[in-house]
Simulated scan of single mutants.
Amino acid sequence: MTAPRVVSVQTGLARPLMVGGRRVLSAIGKTPVTGPVAVGRLGLDGDEQADLSVHGGLDKAVYAYPVEHLPTWQRWRREAGVTLFDEPLPFGFVGENLSVEGLLEHEVWIGDQWVLGDLVLRVTAPREPCFKFNAVTGLPDAGRRMVEGRCSGWYLAVVQPGTVHAGVAVTVRPGSRGMTVAEAFMARRVKHIR
């Protein structure tokens, strides 16, 4: 097993995005940054969220996503004819702030704390896909694929502000261990289906 670490750090500003012929504001477009980035209670310096009803705020200040899922998204895009190339997808592809390695949804527990140097984060919830996510991936069924593949990533709250940088190790402090991110994601999906 790979020791958990942050592979890349991304930020992005809110800007117009064309979705189904209409213009919406979105900050899903994240690009990698170099060097340490300050992280306050509401997230990374230089990062924005466009729709605070579903992203951002104290409980969803930072979004983490496993790099292990990127080859699957690349394959799905190739199979759907969205791309003909085998180039790896860029970090930030799904709008994540932290591209992480060595932790997957079934191994990450709601309430666990992550210590990254002087920064402490707490796992709060899985990400749920939205219509903007479908547009950015180029797959009209990207949300369904995220659900079926159980590859949601997760949100984190900032317990202790600090800095984050690519390469920093993630030390996990176990919380109550009541539910994993994968279990919480599937519980939410079942609730929405009913």
Rank of each mutant, 00 (worst) to 15 (best):
K191H: 14
A50I: 07
G43C: 09
E148I: 10
E183N: 01
P4N: 02
R77Q: 08
D45Y: 10
R177K: 13
A169C: 07
E128C: 01
R41A: 11
A27F: 11
Q74E: 02
G81T: 09
R22C: 01
G102N: 10
Y63C: 03
T34Y: 06
G29H: 15
W109C: 01
V172H: 12
W73N: 08
V172I: 14
P71F: 10
G56C: 11
T163C: 03
E79T: 05
V19N: 09
T2H: 12
L44S: 09
A187F: 02
R144E: 13
W73P: 00
W73G: 06
Q113C: 10
S53F: 11
V170G: 03
P32M: 06
L89I: 00
I193S: 14
E68I: 07
V181P: 00
R194M: 13
E105L: 07
R15W: 09
P126V: 02
P88Q: 15
V158Y: 08
D59A: 02
M179D: 03
V94D: 07
E79F: 01
R194Q: 14
G29K: 11
D112A: 04
V9M: 05
G57K: 03
G175I: 04
I193F: 14
N134G: 07
G102A: 10
V94K: 03
P16V: 07
R77N: 02
W114F: 14
D51M: 12
R78S: 00
L52F: 15
R177G: 00
V6Y: 08
V100M: 07
E148Y: 11
L156G: 05
V67A: 12
L139Y: 07
E148A: 12
C130T: 05
N134E: 11
A27D: 00
K30N: 06
E148S: 14
V190I: 12
T180M: 00
A38T: 09
L13H: 09
R173Y: 10
V39I: 08
G111H: 13
V158N: 05
D112L: 08
L42S: 04
L70V: 08
A64K: 09
H106L: 00
V164E: 04
G178F: 01
A169Q: 15
R22F: 10
G143T: 04
G43W: 12
M146R: 08
Y155K: 08
Y155W: 14
R41V: 01
G92H: 14
W154K: 09
G95S: 12
P36S: 13
H69C: 05
V9R: 06
G21Y: 15
L42N: 09
P66N: 09
S99A: 15
D47L: 06
G20F: 14
A142C: 08
A166T: 03
G20Q: 13
L42F: 14
V190L: 15
P174R: 15
M18C: 04
H55Y: 13
T34V: 09
D45L: 08
P90K: 14
P36A: 15
E68T: 08
V94G: 05
G57L: 04
G111F: 11
R144V: 09
A169D: 14
L58M: 03
D59Y: 10
E101L: 10
L70C: 05
